[in-house]
Write a protein that binds this DNA or RNA. Structure first.
Length: 573
DNA sequence: ATAGGGTTAG
C-alpha cells in the first residue's frame, strides 16, 4: 500500500517537473516489479504520457490495461480532443459505453470539444441527460462554447438560460460566444446582465467585452473598459485585445502610446499594431514596425504577413510587396495563402498590371473565393477595364448569387458599354430574386450615444438643422472650387449618381452632425457600412481643410484620416 | 488520478 502512495507521488512529481526520462523509468520499474500495478497507477501513467505529448506511448499503455475505468477513458478522450483528433475522441466515447463504463462530467466536457458537427453535438448533448449531467458548470460552459463554435447562438443561449448560473466561466462563455460571432450588441447586453447579477468582470470577460466594443467601434466605451483593464496590466491577451480596440476604433494615437508602453509583446501584439497602422493608412510606419519586430526576434506568422502585404498594397509599394511575398516562405516559413495572394492581386491590379494580377490569381495554390475576385474587380474599377471587370463580376456571382453590389456594378458596366440587353436581363434577374441594395448608413458617437444616418431616412430629430448646415457648407465649398464628382461609373451606385442625391449621402450628413455637436478640438470619428464614394471622400478632405478639423472615417474596408485637405489613404482606395 | 472562458486576418 505504501508503494502505491509512493508511486503516485513519484508520477505527480515527474508530471510537474516535466521529467520525461524519469517518468519512463518509473513506468518501467512499476511493470517490472512482478506485481500487477493498480489500475489507477496505470491511469496516472497514461495521463503522464498525455501531458508529455507522447500520445503514442499513452495509447500503447492504455491498450495493455487489463481494466479501464472512467478516468483512464476520459484521459484518452481528453488527449484526442486536445490534439484535435475528433473522430478518435468520439470513437472512444462509444467504445467506453460498449464496455459498460459510465461517462462522467469530465468525460463529457472533453468529448463535447471534439464534436465535429451539429450531428455529433446533438447526440452527445442528448446523451448527457441520461447521466443527469446537464447542470454541471463545466459541461455547460463546454456546451455553450461548442454551439458557439458552430455558429448556433440560439442553442448556446438556450443552454445558458436553462439554469441560473453562479459560475463566472459560464458567463464568460456566453459573452465570448456572442462576441466571437460578431453579435456585439448581445455580448454587451449579457455583460451588463452579468454586472447586474453581481459578478465582477475579470480577464476573459474584459477580453470578450473589448472585442464586442471593437465590433461596434465604440471608442469612448472602450476607454471606460480600459480603466478596468489596468487591474490586470500583466495579462498579455487582454492587453492585445485593448490594443486592437484602439486600432479598430480609430484611436490610433492611443494605440501607439499603449503599444509603446507594453512591457511584454508577442507576435499578436506586433501583428495587431502593424495591421492597425496599415488599416489607418500609415503603411510606411507599419513596415518600419515590422523591421523592429524582426529585430526583437519575434517570428512573424501567417497573419503578420497578411498585415505586411496589406500595408504594401495600401501604399502601392509594388517592389516591396513582391519581395516580402516571394521571401516569406524562406525567411519565416509562411506559405502564401488566399489573403496574401489577395494583397498581391490588389497591388498588381492597382499598379495597372491587371494581366499580371489575373495570372497570379490563376496560379494560386488554393481556390480563389469571392473576396479574391472582388479585389480584381476593384482594380478593374480604377483602371476602367470593363472586360476583366465583367469576367470577375461573373465569377463573384457564381460564388455569391445574392451579392447586390456586384449585380449593380455589372449592370452599370453593361449600360456604359451600351450592352442594353445584358443590362436589362440582369436587372430582371435581380427583381426576380428580390434583391435590393443595402442603403448607405453612417454613424457617430456623441455623448455616449450612437447617431445613425441612413440614406434617404430623415428620422433624426435634428435633420432639418443638419440639412440646412449641409447646404450652407456645400455652398461655401463650391466657393473654394468644390465640384460634386458624379463620374463614378464603375461603382455600385444605383441611381444615386445625380448630384442632389449625392449631396445627402449618409456620411455627409454625419460629418455635418459631428461638426455641429462635437467640441471644436475633438476628432470627428465616423463609421460607414459601405465603401466611401469618391465625392464624399473629396468633400471630407475639403471640410477638414476649411473647418480645420480632423475627420476619421472607417468604411467597410479601411480607415481614412482627413486632415488639412488630404487623406491618409493618399486617394488610393 | 480525468474537465472550463479570452487576443491579430477572413
Amino acid at each position: 500500500m505504501a508503494d502505491c502512495v509512493a508511486y503516485s507521488e513519484l508520477i505527480k512529481c515527474c508530471i510537474s517537473k516535466r521529467a520525461i526520462e524519469e517518468g519512463k523509468l518509473v513506468h518501467k520499474h512499476l511493470v517490472s516489479n512482478g506485481n500487477k500495478p493498480k489500475s489507477f497507477l496505470l491511469s496516472m501513467l497514461v495521463n503522464m504520457y498525455v501531458k508529455f505529448n507522447l500520445l503514442g506511448e499513452a495509447e500503447k499503455l492504455f491498450d495493455k490495461m487489463p481494466e479501464r475505468n472512467v478516468v483512464a477513458w476520459t484521459t484518452m478522450i481528453s488527449a484526442y480532443s486536445n490534439a484535435k483528433i475528433s473522430h478518435k475522441a468520439l470513437e472512444f466515447l462509444i467504445l467506453m459505453l460498449r464496455e459498460g463504463v459510465s461517462p462522467n462530467m469530465y468525460t463529457f466536457s472533453s468529448v463535447l470539444r471534439a464534436c465535429d458537427g451539429m450531428l455529433s453535438l446533438r447526440q452527445v448533448h442528448c446523451g448527457l441527460f441520461k447521466y443527469g449531467l446537464e447542470s454541471d458548470v463545466f459541461v455547460r460552459s463546454a456546451l455553450i462554447d461548442v454551439y458557439a463554435k458552430w455558429g448556433e447562438l440560439d442553442n448556446a443561449l438556450a443552454v445558458f438560460e436553462e439554469f441560473v448560473t453562479g459560475d463566472l466561466v459560464v458567463w464568460n462563455s456566453i459573452i465570448g460566444a456572442f462576441a466571437q460571432n460578431s453579435d456585439s450588441d448581445e455580448a454587451l447586453n449579457l455583460f451588463k446582465r452579468m454586472k447586474r447579477a453581481g459578478f465582477a468582470a475579470e480577464q476573459a470577460t474584459l477580453t470578450s467585452t473589448l472585442r464586442a466594443v471593437t465590433g461596434l467601434s465604440l471608442l469612448e466605451l472602450g476607454r471606460q473598459v480600459h480603466v478596468h483593464v489596468l487591474k490586470y496590466d500583466q495579462d498579455l491577451i487582454l492587453n492585445n485585445a485593448l490594443l486592437d480596440m484602439y486600432c479598430k476604433c480609430g484611436g490610433l494615437d492611443d494605440a501607439r502610446l499603449f503599444f509603446s508602453q507594453m512591457k511584454e509583446r508577442d507576435v499578436i501584439s506586433w501583428s495587431t499594431m502593424i495591421i492597425g497602422l496599415a488599416q489607418n493608412g500609415f503603411s510606411r510606419e507599419a513596415l518600419d514596425l515590422f523591421e523592429m519586430m524582426k529585430q526583437t526576434g519575434t517570428k512573424p506568422n501567417y497573419i503578420t504577413m497578411v498585415g505586411v502585404l496589406f500595408a504594401c498594397s495600401h501604399a502601392g509599394l509594388l517592389e516591396e510587396g513582391q519581395y516580402y511575398f516571394e521571401s516569406m516562405k524562406k525567411l519565416f516559413g509562411v506559405d502564401p495563402g488566399r489573403e496574401h495572394y489577395g494583397c498581391m492581386i490588389d497591388l498588381l491590379g492597382r499598379a495597372g498590371k491587371i494581366d499580371d494580377a489575373v495570372r497570379l490569381l490563376h496560379e494560386m495554390n488554393c481556390e480563389p473565393d469571392a473576396v479574391t475576385w472582388r479585389t480584381l474587380l476593384g482594380a478593374c474599377k480604377i483602371h476602367k477595364n470593363a472586360d476583366i471587370a465583367i469576367y470577375a463580376a461573373k465569377q463573384i456571382l457564381k460564388l455569391e448569387p445574392d451579392d447586390v453590389g456586384t449585380y449593380i456594378l455589372l449592370s452599370n458596366i453593361y449600360e456604359n458599354s451600351q450592352r442594353w440587353e445584358d443590362a436589362t436581363s440582369l436587372r430582371k434577374t435581380m427583381r426576380e430574386r428580390g434583391l435590393k441594395k443595402e442603403p448607405g448608413c453612417s454613424w457617430i458617437e456623441v455623448d455616449k450615444r450612437i447617431h445613425a444616418f441612413i440614406f434617404r431616412d430623415m428620422s433624426h430629430p435634428q435633420i432639418d438643422d443638419i440639412i440646412r448646415e449641409l447646404n450652407q457648407l456645400v455652398l461655401k465649398l463650391r466657393g473654394v472650387g468644390y465640384v460634386p464628382d458624379t463620374n463614378f461609373i464603375l461603382q455600385d451606385l444605383e441611381g444615386e449618381q445625380k448630384e442632389d442625391s449625392l449631396q445627402y449621402h449618409s456620411e455627409k450628413l454625419t460629418i455635418v452632425y459631428g461638426l455641429m455637436s462635437l467640441p471644436r478640438a475633438s476628432i470627428i470619428r465616423i463609421k460607414k457600412n459601405l465603401r466611401i464614394c469618391g465625392d464624399c471622400h473629396l468633400f471630407a478632405k475639403l471640410v477638414a481643410k476649411t473647418e480645420k478639423r480632423i475627420i476619421v472615417i472607417r468604411d467597410q474596408v479601411r480607415y481614412h484620416h482627413f486632415q488639412d485637405g488630404t487623406c491618409s489613404c493618399g486617394d488610393y482606395w
